[in-house]
Design a protein around this nucleic acid. Structure first.
Lengths: 69, 69
DNA sequence: ATCTATTATTCCCGTTCGGGAATAATTACT
DNA sequence: AGTAATTATTCCCGAACGGGAATAATAGAT
């Protein structure tokens, strides 16, 4: 899936988390972020800090990839 | 290229920008971010805001992709 | 429909982002 | 080497992040 916005990331985080039967609280603890942050992230908040986003993705086994020309 | 940290993103931004003969000032203006932000980003600052990062990548033609299981 | 679990939203608040501009430092060019 | 250009770093400061906790709202299950 191609990411074009923060919303896209939120969507995939939410989807994947549910697929793996995680609750926000669980994933937040696992990722060392607050539950507020995770909620914000899943709802597409555009100002989330990149490092925490990456950590959450990692804890869901989601691979983030970049495609240069 | 697989992204594991903010540093990885910074690296590819810098590389790609140079390949395309952009200066930080140019890319910053193009992306509607400050030059400070761009410098920080390229140097791997972990707290950069996700939306601006995405915008910069887009302006370099770098595709951001997510790989779910 | 009811009750519970999960998620979203609000609050307080310390910390930090990021813009802009100036300055230092680094790099590139001849 | 010397000069110009590019980048990094510092400063000021308003605005917003994110944690924690409480509350409201939503969804899920029986």
């Amino acid at each position: 899936m191609i990411i074009k916005s923060a919303q896209d990331i939120g969507k995939i985080v939410k989807e994947t988390r549910k697929k793996q039967n995680f609750t926000q609280v669980q994933l937040a603890q696992l990722s060392n972020v607050g539950t507020r942050f995770l909620s914000d992230l899943e709802n597409g908040k555009p100002t989330c800090e990149i490092d925490k986003v990456i950590k959450v993705l990692a804890n869901l086994g989601i691979k983030l990839e970049v495609n240069n020309g």
